[in-house]
Design a protein around this nucleic acid. Structure first.
Lengths: 273, 273
DNA sequence: CACCTCCGGTACGCTATGCGTACAGTCTGA
DNA sequence: TCAGACTGTACGCATAGCGTACCGGAGGTG
């Protein structure tokens, strides 16, 4: 077959393995072999081989004709965290920010058009969203996404816009021009505030975290709900604290602040994460 | 080659893919192709093919001859969390326990001879250990491990003992008989307290969480340090709270308490996780 | 009780898949 | 300028991994 996207240098069995692994879901927690086969579109023997391999690696477990993921799947992420020193290093800062504000503090990185939580100290359950490390949220509708995009190569911004700015609440910015203007504002002010664009009543402030070279590699956020604070309060009280904390993390990570927040707008390479 | 452990039904490329993915580490955050090849023992072209495949799946990123993991790796774990409703459901309970005790609260499951953190609300940084969701700790030296082993099939206990009870501090229980006695005590009392066996000065109390059938599938813990509490205080004040919270999680998950804590000692199958 | 259906497991032969060797091109440092 | 170490590519071979086909068992249904 010459129809494949990558054709050469693409290992079919590896991709299929992930297909099966990712087929486990909230809707499909204990699938049978046949169920997985139809969900992935693979033949039953193929799925069986994959499951047996995954089982021998300890990632899945078969029992009474039904399969489930083991906690070892969670440990895979440890390799990401461990290989990015910034994450561990930011933990005390997150904790302090959460204490000072009595609100949840989060750290996130950009992955495609999504924002992925890479660190978090929960304080209260925020609205209906269940946020945990590894959770994904559309970048365009969150303060962390805005920060990351504001300093990202233009290519990324185009990607996000091309993917579509769908209204998630009636406040969501969906106009490309307005969105780009918003990013420019964020870059000028050094932080982002988003109010109820991802979910009604959800407020958050976010500021950039930089590596040694000044590249923005993550975003720090403090989140609250409209019942507990107003946008103005966030701007005057919380935003400076978030910016200061983000700068502290950057400094810990090796970034020498050069004046204010104007080091490098963006680097040629796409950032560390 | 007929020497392989499983021979048939084992997919080589899949295993190799994970080998490469897991080769990223704190010591090897941005390996080169050659570095990964020598670390995994695979040929350079093989590693290259795997990297290209993983890149197309979004898990790694190559840049200037060096490779790194992307945050998408963290999202893999979401499939575990999502497929085990108990985790999300336990979150408010963890939060409440953390508030009531002003100490970190954790939830963990058994994976082989390790305990894996599957939920956590941090309050303070505990000692030198960096604990995050997905972190692994030897089961035998922690209160959560003791709880999980106390109700696990004997086979698991044998495994842990066979793997060796190495002293991690001078308090670590290393004698197999004493260890089994300890597990019996835990089962009788319905909770476990471990003081400084994993790390000097680290104290924790743990209680079992059960599923519908009464099988122990997770352990809930509250952790503190010897500077802030004594074993006696833990026993009289914190332990009952941890047990009550664990029971509440079990109830939320569908377990009907049958009297006290004496439902099923252990089920034939190995538990849900 | 016989029939049907859906399942998981196994066998097997084929071929495309993935393999390693070998070579080319590049960069760095001696 | 050369040596060494690296990445990337080409290529031909072996086999790894594929799907079809078949078997036996477990419900469900008439």
């Amino acid at each position: 077959m010459t129809k494949d996207e990558n054709s050469r240098d693409h290992i079919q069995s590896l991709e299929r393995g992930f297909q099966v692994l990712l087929a486990f879901d909230a809707d499909r927690p204990n699938p049978s072999l046949a169920e997985l086969a139809s969900a992935t579109g693979l033949s039953r023997p193929a799925v069986r081989r994959i499951l047996i391999t995954l089982q021998s690696l300890g990632y899945v477990k078969g029992e009474g004709g039904h399969w489930s993921l083991t906690p070892r799947v969670l440990s895979i992420g440890q390799h990401y965290s461990a290989s990015h020193a910034m994450i561990e290093l930011s933990q005390p800062h997150l904790m302090r920010l959460a204490e000072q504000t009595s609100e949840s503090a989060s750290l996130a990185a950009l992955d495609g058009t999504d924002v992925v939580y890479i660190g978090r100290v929960p304080v209260r359950r925020i609205m209906s969203i269940n946020i945990a490390i590894g959770s994904r949220v559309p970048a365009y509708a969150t303060s962390m996404g805005r920060v990351l995009l504001a300093w990202a190569p233009p290519k990324h911004v185009d990607e996000v816009i091309d993917a579509g700015l769908r209204p998630l609440t009636r406040n969501t910015v969906t106009d490309p021009d307005e969105f780009r203007r918003e990013l420019r504002t964020v870059r000028a002010e050094g932080y982002s505030i988003v109010a109820g664009e991802l979910e009604e009543g959800l407020l958050s402030v976010s500021a950039p975290v930089r590596d040694q070279s000044g590249t923005v590699i993550a975003a720090l956020a403090s989140s609250t709900s409209s019942g507990r604070a107003t946008v103005e309060e966030l701007r005057s009280e919380i935003a400076p604290l978030v910016v200061r904390t983000a700068d502290a993390i950057s400094a810990d990570y090796g970034h020498r602040a050069s004046g204010k927040a104007t080091s490098t707008v963006h680097r040629e390479h796409e950032g560390f994460f």
